[in-house]
């Protein structure tokens, strides 16, 4: 994850409390989604950014996961994301995200 974005995530977690934050991702692939999710839960796996070794355990989802999709107005979701659902491997994204959440998320 971009270093500036990591810095912002860390600052917001300090400001609002990690339990009050939800991170929503838009990554193009399962693995990239998993890496971003790992970054905001268990720390930056690439050891490059401000979240290295910082285990925030934030609640994190991909926009295409059913937990988030069902909360969004259907027509808006369709307008903003609908067609990308045909392009992305949603099952792969869900399985990567679920695995990371189960292992590292502290606020489910």
């Amino acid at each position: 994850m971009d270093l500036e974005n990591q810095k912002r995530v860390k600052e917001f977690a300090e400001k609002y409390g990690a339990e009050n934050i939800v991170v929503i991702l838009g990554a193009a692939e399962g693995e990239a989604a998993g890496l971003a999710a790992e970054t905001v839960t268990n720390g930056d796996p690439t050891f490059a950014g401000p979240l290295t070794g910082v285990q925030l355990g934030l609640s994190v989802f991909h926009i295409c996961e059913p937990e988030i999709k069902e909360l969004v107005d259907e027509s808006i979701y369709d307008e903003q994301v609908g067609m990308m659902e045909m392009v992305l491997d949603i099952d792969d994204i869900i399985s990567e995200m679920t695995a990371i959440r189960e292992e590292f998320c502290k606020y489910l």
């Binding site: 193009a28 067609m83 392009v87």
Partner: peptide
Amino acid sequence: TKPAGAGDVPLANYKMIGALAVK
């Protein structure tokens, strides 16, 4: 791009254009 998690960028574009063609 694929090993970096950005996917196959041209292919994703073609799928979108194709999906638009279906629509």
